[in-house]
């Protein structure tokens, strides 16, 4: 089986895109967090597979961070936060689920067209990986703009970042990948803590950003 390495990488990266699409239509926060945990676990598997295939043991560190931090600790913390904040109710996307899904599919198609056209010279391994990574990135972006809820936006950002890690591990021998994933983890930890602290200390009535918009002083 000469192409097992490629097939498994393809399967894992493709599943990541699928889970990204699943994230788009979760309309309850606990379910959203669970799906994100799945997203992070798939990323960890994908990175670990790349580490094995590329014979780059340092990537196992990135995989371990993805699994432990983003797959277990962050979802756990978010679950506790939404219970404490009492917002494990429905979340309302800005546009309906139908249009969001259609937009998501269009973005996946766009990234396939763009990346596969642009990289005829690169190895098929890297090409597919990049195309999937761009899809995950754009889907994360779509999620960030279609959600008004701060927790939803953070999950969107984290899935976007998973796409970046996928791209970085797909680029063979790229330096600084581990450092970048550590830096991102610290950033995310800060943000999650920030959401929690500001809600408690500053007595926000809600982390719904529409409520924050009302507080704007300009041009009212």
């Amino acid at each position: 089986m000469p192409d097992l390495a490629f097939d498994v990488a393809h399967l894992l990266a493709g599943s990541l895109v699928l889970v990204s699409l699943m994230l788009l239509y979760q309309d309850r926060l606990p379910a959203l967090i669970n799906v994100f945990a799945l997203h992070a676990i798939l990323l960890a598997a994908s990175v670990a597979w790349q580490a094995l295939v590329q014979d780059a043991p340092v990537l196992f560190v990135t995989a371990a961070i993805a699994l432990g931090f983003k797959g277990i600790i962050i979802p756990g913390a978010l679950r506790r936060i939404i219970v404490r904040l009492g917002i494990h109710r429905e979340i309302e996307p800005v546009v309906g689920i139908g249009p969001t899904m259609l937009a998501g599919m269009a973005l996946v198609a766009l990234s396939m067209v763009v990346m596969l056209r642009a990289t005829p010279a690169a190895s098929p391994f890297a090409r597919e990986d990049l195309a999937f990574a761009l899809s995950v990135l754009l889907l994360g972006l779509l999620m960030m703009v279609s959600r008004r809820n701060a927790v939803g936006q953070v999950i969107g950002f984290m899935s976007l970042e998973n796409g970046l890690i996928l791209a970085a591990t797909g680029a063979k021998g790229m330096p600084l990948v581990v450092e970048i994933s550590v830096a991102f983890s610290i950033l995310i930890a800060f943000i999650v803590i920030g959401i929690f602290l500001f809600r408690i200390r500053e007595r926000f009535d809600t982390v719904d950003l529409q409520a924050l918009d009302r507080a704007r002083g300009d041009q009212r």
Binding site: T119, A126, L130, M144, L160, G163, M174
Partner: peptide, 19 residues
């Protein structure tokens, strides 16, 4: 963070082109 994402993706692509 959108800027963060795009700029890093661009940096990865530069590396891919250079590699």
């Amino acid at each position: 963070s959108v800027g963060i994402g795009f700029a890093l993706f661009g940096t990865i692509l530069i590396y891919m082109a250079a590699q």
